[in-house]
Amino acid sequence: MDYIKAFLVGGAICAVVQILLDKTKLLPGRVMVILVCTGALLGAVGIYEPFAKWAGAGAGVPLTGFGNVLFKGVKEAVDKEGFIGIFKGGFTSSAVGISSALIFAYIASWFFGPKMKS
C-alpha cells in the first residue's frame, strides 16, 4: 500500500510538472524553482509535513519535498538558535542531499563520459 500511495502521489506531482512544461513557456529551471518554493511554502503553512507523512516517498522525492526540508531546517534552527538560524537551517538540513548529489555525480564522472542524445 505504501508503494502504491508513493507511486500515485509522486506521479501526480510529476504530471502537474509535465503539464507546466508542455502548456506554458516556463523553462525547466524555472519549473524546478517553482517546485522548491511551493514545497517550502506548503511546509511553512503546515500542510506539507502531514501530507509527506501520509504519502511517504511520493512527497519526499520530488523537489517539493526538498523545499519542505529547507523550510523545516530553517524553522528548527530558528527555534534552537534564534535569528542566526535563518541563515543556517536550510543548509544544515539539506547538506546530506546536496553533498551526496555532488559526490556521487563526481564519482560517476570518473567512469562515464558525456554522450550524445539520439
Partner: peptide, 18 residues
Amino acid sequence: HFAGAEKQFRTPLDYGNQ
C-alpha cells in the same frame, strides 16, 4: 554541434532535460 550548442545555449546533455 548538437552537444556543444545544447551545453552553450540550453542545458548540458547530462542534465537530461526534456
